[in-house]
Design a protein around this nucleic acid. Structure first.
Lengths: 193, 193
DNA sequence: AGTACAAACGGAGACTATCTCCTTATGGGC
DNA sequence: GCCCATAAGGAGATAGTCTCCGTTTGTACT
C-alpha cells in the first residue's frame, strides 16, 4: 500500500481531479459574468469538455454551486472566529450579519438556491445553511444575554431576513443607499417604539 | 357611426375578448396550482387554444401576470382608501404594509418578477410598483410626522423590504411563526436600542 | 345571403436549456 | 505492453419559450 487510498481501491484517475478543478475555475468566472442562472452546457463548452463530464462531476446546478461556495464558506468560518473575539456582543452580531450578507451575495442570484435549500435538507447547500443558522443563533443569544438584542428574535428568522435583504439588493442596485438602508431597517425596524 | 369606436375603426372581433377572458381564467387557476413559473404553453393547451394566440394576447409572462394582478391591484387600492380612514397613522402604516405583503404573495413566486420590474421601467408591472411605493411613502410620511416611524426610513426601502419578506416567506412555510416573526422584525428590528 | 378582407387563430418548428445514456478513450496496476 | 475499470464525450430525448405564416372567422357592406 504505497498510497493513502483504502485497500482494494484503485487511485482515482488524474484527469478526474484535473477536470474538476478546471470546471470549477470556469464556472466561477461564468457565474461571475452571467449570474448563477447561466447555462451549464455553456460552462462545459467553455471548459472544453462535454456536458456529460460536467454532469458526472456535478449532477445539478446546486452541487456545482455548493462546490464553488466551499472556499467562501471557509472564509466565512474564519471571519466567525475573528468576530468571536469582539467583546461587544451586539457589535459582534452586527458584524456577523454583515459577513453573512456578503457571503450570500457572492454570486448574482445566489440567495434563490439558498432559500430553496433552506427548506429541503437533501440539498448540499442545506447543511451549510444550517451551520450558519446555528452560528447566527450563538451570536444572537450572546447579544440577547447582554441586552443588545430583542429577546423574542430567533436566529432562524435573522438568517432568513439576511437572505431576503441580499435577494432584494440584487435588484436595487440602481440606488446606492439601499444596502445600508435595508441593513439599518433590519437592525432598528421602521417603528420608533 | 352606430358604434362607440373611433371613426374608421372596425369593432374588435368578439372572439378576441372571449379568448382573452378565457386565457386569464385558465392562467389564474394554473398559476394558483403551479406557481407563476408554470409553463405558458401548458396554459394555452389547457385553455384549448394555440400558443400563438396566448402570445398575441400576452407577449410574455410578465404581461399575463400584470393582467392577472389587475383585479388584485384594484382590491389593494380600495384597501388603501379604507386604511386612510385610520386615525392612528402608525397603525395605518402597519396595516398598509400588511396589505401590500398579502398582495405580493397572491401567487407563488410573484415577488421575483415584481423585484425585476422594480428596476426596469419598461415593464407593465413597474408602473404598479411605482404607484404602491408612492402610497407607502404617503403612509410613512404621515407616521413620521406623528413620530410613529423613524425619520430616516424611505418608502422605497419599506416597499423593498416587504417584497423581500414576501419572497422569503415562500420557502419558510415549514415554520408557522415565520411570517409574524419577519413582520415584527421589520417593524422593530433586532436591536434593543 | 353573399362577398371581401382585416383581424385573429392555430400549430409547426426554430431555438435554447437540462440532463441521460451509451460508445469511445485513457490512465493505473500488474 | 496489456487489461479493464474509470472517466470522457457527445448525440439525442425532453421540455419550455416564442415566432412565423398559412388558414379561419367575424364584421361590414352590398
Amino acid at each position: 500500500m504505497a498510497e493513502t487510498t483504502a485497500a482494494n481501491e484503485r487511485r482515482p484517475r488524474s484527469d478526474k481531479q484535473r477536470n474538476r478543478t478546471h470546471i470549477l475555475q470556469t464556472a466561477e468566472r461564468y457565474f461571475a459574468e452571467h449570474g448563477i442562472t447561466g447555462s451549464l452546457d455553456a460552462i462545459a463548452k467553455r471548459a472544453g469538455i462535454g456536458p456529460g463530464t460536467l454532469y458526472r462531476h456535478f449532477p445539478n446546478r446546486e452541487s456545482l454551486l455548493a462546490a464553488l461556495l466551499q472556499a467562501r464558506n471557509d472564509e466565512l468560518v474564519s471571519q466567525r472566529e475573528a468576530i468571536r473575539q469582539e467583546p461587544d456582543t451586539t457589535a459582534a452580531l452586527a458584524r456577523w450579519l454583515d459577513a453573512l450578507s456578503q457571503w450570500a451575495t457572492a454570486f448574482d442570484g445566489l440567495p434563490e438556491p439558498l432559500r430553496a435549500a433552506f427548506s429541503e435538507d437533501t440539498s448540499p447547500l442545506a447543511l451549510t445553511c444550517q451551520g450558519f443558522i446555528t452560528t447566527t443563533d450563538e451570536f444572537l443569544h450572546a447579544a440577547q444575554r447582554d441586552g443588545g438584542a430583542r429577546p423574542d428574535v430567533r436566529g432562524r428568522d435573522l438568517f432568513l431576513a439576511v437572505l431576503a435583504m441580499s435577494w432584494v439588493r440584487g435588484a436595487a442596485v440602481a440606488d446606492e443607499s439601499s444596502p445600508t438602508a435595508l441593513s439599518n431597517l433590519m437592525r432598528t425596524g421602521w417603528a420608533t417604539t
